[in-house]
Design a binder for these strands. Sequence first.
DNA 1: TATGACGTTCCGTGGGACGGAACATCGATC
DNA 2: GATCGATGTTCCGTCCCACGGAACGTCATA
Lengths: 245, 245
Amino acid sequence: MSMLEKSWLILDSFRPTGGPLRLADVSARCRLPKTTTHRLLAELAELGAVDRQDDGYILGRALFELGSIVPLERDLRDAALPFMHDLYEATRETVHLAVRDGLDVVYVEKLRGHEGLALPSRVGGRLPLTCTGVGKALLAFAGEQLIEEVLGRPLRRLTPHSIVDRSRLEESLVSAQQTGLAYERQEAQPGSACVAAPVFRDGVCVAALSVSTPIARFQPARLAPAVKTAALGISRALARHTPPR
Amino acid sequence: MSMLEKSWLILDSFRPTGGPLRLADVSARCRLPKTTTHRLLAELAELGAVDRQDDGYILGRALFELGSIVPLERDLRDAALPFMHDLYEATRETVHLAVRDGLDVVYVEKLRGHEGLALPSRVGGRLPLTCTGVGKALLAFAGEQLIEEVLGRPLRRLTPHSIVDRSRLEESLVSAQQTGLAYERQEAQPGSACVAAPVFRDGVCVAALSVSTPIARFQPARLAPAVKTAALGISRALARHTPPR
DNA sequence: TATGACGTTCCGTGGGACGGAACATCGATC
DNA sequence: GATCGATGTTCCGTCCCACGGAACGTCATA
C-alpha cells in the first residue's frame, strides 16, 4: 500500500463526524502501525488537511476548500439553490438535495429553518438508497439494472419501519416511476417523513429533491406539488446552464 | 518533496475552478515531471479524489464528501443557516457567510435567489480581506496585530474602487469597530455593494455575515439592521451549542 | 512505586517512488 | 501521406526515503 493510499485511509477514518480522533483511534481504525499513522498525520497537518487540537485531530480547512469547488456538486448546487429556497418558503420544512453514489445517497445540500427537526442527514453524509425518499427517487429512475442489483441484496434497515420486503420496495419504486414522487415514512428516522422528486439533466436522473417534516404534521398532498415544481425548475435550470456537448 | 506533498500540490492546482485540467496543465502548474504527474493522477483517480473525463481531470466526489464534514466549518454553517435564511427573506438579496484564513476571506456559505447577481465569491473561494465587506468586518475584530500586518503590506486591488489608501482603510476599520458594521462599494466587483457584520463565539470573532446587492439598489439603512440582527442571532446560537471547554 | 495508555523519537533495511527515455496516438499543416 | 508538434502512456534501473519495530518520554490512575 502506497503512502498516498494510507493517507487517504486516514482521512477516510474521520467519517462520518470529521473528528476529533486521537492518534490511537486513527491507528486502530486504519489498522496501521502507530508510528506510521503518527508520521502521516503530521504530514497531513502540515498541509492543512487535518488540524491538531488538544483532544485529537480533526479534518482541516484546506479539505473544506477543496471539497467546495468539486465541479459536479458545485454546478448542481448552484442551479438548485434558488429553487430549494422557493420550496422552503412554500413549505417551511427541511429541504434536501442528494445524488447517488453506488448504493448510497450522498447529501449535497440541506436547507432548514429554526424549527427544522434533527435528521440523520448531513451534507456530505451517506444513507442507504432504500431507506430515504431521495434514495427511492434516485433508484426508481436509475435504470432496471441497478434496481435489480439492489433487489438482489438484503435490504438495509435503519428503523423498524425501513422497507425490508422486496415486493413492497418494488411496488413503491413503480409508483415513483409513474407519479414522479417517492415517499418515506419513518424509514430513516423515527418520527420523520418526506416526499421526494427526481431531478434530470439531459434526460438522466442526476439528483433528487425532498421535503422532510415530523410525521405528526406530514401533509403529502400539500408538499408533493411543491416538491415536483421545484425539481422541475432545477431540471430546467440544469438544461439551460449546461449546453449538450 | 514527499509523494503526499506532490499529490496535494496536484489537488491544489485545480483551484479555483476544480477543473477540468489536462495532464499537461497539471504538470505545468505543479512544475512536476509529466511522468510523476501522470502516476499520481492515476492513483488519485483510483481513490476518487479526482475524476477522469474526456477533456481532462476534475476534482472528485470523494473530496466533496470529506470537505463537507470538516467540523469547524460544518458547525458554523449549521448554526448560521437558519439565520441566513431569515436574512434572505427579510432582504431578498444574496447572503454570504465567511471566515478568515491568513489574509484572505474564505466563503463558507452563500444563499441566493433567482435574481441574485453574479458575484466573484463562491463557497470555498478566497478574496483579499481588504476588498470585501466580510473581510473588513473580520479584520476589524481580529486584533491590532493582524491589522498592523495588513497595513504594513501593499493593499491588493480587485477593482478601481478597491481601497489602496492606508488611512482610508484604517478609518473604515475604526468605523466598523464602533458600529459593528462594515461596508463595501464596488471594491470587489464593479456594480455591487454590501454590508457586513461580525459573528462571535466566546468573545472571539470567528466569522462574518453580509448582504450584497447591485449598487443601484443598495440601501444600507434598510440592510444594516437586518444583517446585525442575524449576526447576533448566529453568535447566540454558537454560544448555545458549544459549551465552553 | 508500579502500571498502563498514549504520544514521540530513533534508525537500519528494503521496497517502491522517481523521472529520463522511448513509445504511442492523435490533429494539423504542407 | 509525410512531417511535425503536442499530448498521454509505458518501461525500467537507480537510489532514496518511507517503513515500522523497539525504545523512550509523559502523563494519569491504582
